[in-house]
Design a protein around this nucleic acid. Sequence first.
DNA 1: CTGAAAGCGCTTACAG
DNA 2: CTGAAAGCGCTTACAG
Lengths: 358, 358
Amino acid sequence: MTDTPPARRAARVTLREVAERAGVSRSAVSFVMNGRTDQRLSDDVFDRVRRAADELGYRPNITAQTLRTGRSGTVALVSDFVSSTSFANSMVRGAMQELREHDTLLFTVDTQGDADLEDQLLHSLLGRNIDGVIYASMFTRTVTLPRVLEGVPTVLLNCVTVDGSIDAVVPDEIAAGRDAARMLLDHGHRDGIWFVGDLPAGSRGGAAWPEWDPIALTERLAGIDQVLTAAGTTLAGVTAIDDDWDVANGRRAVSRMLAEARGAPTALVCANDALAVGAYQALHHAGLSVPADVSVIGFDGSPYARAVEPELTSIALPHIELGRQAAAMLAAPGDSPRIERVPMPIRVGGSVGGPPSL
Amino acid sequence: MTDTPPARRAARVTLREVAERAGVSRSAVSFVMNGRTDQRLSDDVFDRVRRAADELGYRPNITAQTLRTGRSGTVALVSDFVSSTSFANSMVRGAMQELREHDTLLFTVDTQGDADLEDQLLHSLLGRNIDGVIYASMFTRTVTLPRVLEGVPTVLLNCVTVDGSIDAVVPDEIAAGRDAARMLLDHGHRDGIWFVGDLPAGSRGGAAWPEWDPIALTERLAGIDQVLTAAGTTLAGVTAIDDDWDVANGRRAVSRMLAEARGAPTALVCANDALAVGAYQALHHAGLSVPADVSVIGFDGSPYARAVEPELTSIALPHIELGRQAAAMLAAPGDSPRIERVPMPIRVGGSVGGPPSL
DNA sequence: CTGAAAGCGCTTACAG
DNA sequence: CTGAAAGCGCTTACAG
């Protein structure tokens, strides 16, 4: 972008020209354009200015306003991968929608998890007088807020700081775990419920991002445990997944589990939809059908859920709503740090039924 | 965002302070910061300025630079739905990556196809002195460039104008169609090749966006026709899809087709991956297996392709590369309108084999 | 009720 | 080789 000529520079009408045409001072035009009725300008002046502005097609130079006021009507969504990958991307949509209501435009920036790049981008954004930052993560996890953001209005999206000192919006994973367990109990399952997708012993956050600490898994399991415990039972087992939570690993893990498990499972709760699809395949190979023989629940509400037959019942990540609420929080600053937990809706497919014994 | 205090306003170091600390003029600081060696400043001045800037943690106020120069180091990706939906969203990623190389930040804006909203957003962006616009569409189609963009450096992403007068980057759909056909011919298919996914007679662009004119379908079919014709054969048939190109409609259409078709198909080319997944299901219900009885090819390279067994062979939309090239084109303006056709890579799964007769 | 003036933080001819 | 000054297009006390 070094040698492009400035966009439409010559053509733009300026406030001064509006003032001249309307025969008033520049102050008056400014007041009218900003709808400041507290200046008790005459109706006549209001009309003349509006007309002149319309006729000239005047559009305020927001850069100049920003320089003067320090406010840009601009916000940045800074994330690791959110805006550049399909998964989780709807958070951007939610944020954009809400920001529209506040006449605020959105910068979108991904750091790929690179701290230097992040620092550079944040400085670049701050140099443009952004009014605030939505700091987002693709996976729900704990983060450390970059130091540059101290003093900058910031809301965390899909992540939290360890001390909970920063406004944050996260999915309600514990409730989601409870919902999954409750749904299975309601269908009559009890002692044959397995969880598919624990991390390999000793690891945190999966192979791809070993240093990350995903709280989704922990909380989903916690929610499930709560409900099962209250019902006087417990998970029949938990199967680890070696690497990524993808279809092939799900198939492999469930095949192994079916071969090894004493007492056939009646239901599988899978850490995400891709694993659940793998589970479908493993069940199919074992001659078991969903949901007649085994019920399956996934998490995420991803396209995977609609790619299988019967469609997968999945507890969806409310990405749009997460994004929207983060933007709303940024727009309406509160005093104490707020941690908003957004409910995860259940997308009902046909993958949950009663246990085969009933 | 009306009542937030300006971000870090008080804290920012200004060029004047650097000048004072270094004991030089503001001009000198400006020249040093912009690396202008043509001013023949002494090495001593250079050093003193750099040191002062470092010590004070000086960061130029880009808003002020923009006001002065008319250039903001900022570009907008304006689209219908690209940045707010998962599909096609990787175009944003490609654009961001390329823009990084040019120290340019990206505004992201979706109009939901609403012309008024689009107009409003474009004015808002232009008022912020953006240097250029990437005008993108979720589906490959023809567009009319908004009038506000006349005179603004613009590159079309995944769309073209009817007259081809604006720089554009689109996937090479014709070549993709050819590739699909050639792959099937290479595997020995010939007279049993069906296409799944034509529009219902008389409609354009699908039920959801009736006024749109998707060129993908036309061009894919054209490419297929070219190759089959050259090989002395032709499509055995084309099945229409009523509404959206989704899994359920694909299943229904292929079931119907299998029931009605004279001469069993040996291969299905599906207009997108979701339809292909539906085709898998229909074939399965009919007791046919992929690829032993019927080969299947999809388009898009979406997650659907990995949700089925065997994995679907799909001709992928090169979203990242599309975005990257659009950004590169914007950064390096050429004189004549350029239409760049980006190859669509074949993601080989296990869904293509020889026809059953071989 | 209205207008002249200062100033936001830069860049860049221009004079010395 | 360096510095003082104008100006980008606004907003906003301040004086009238």
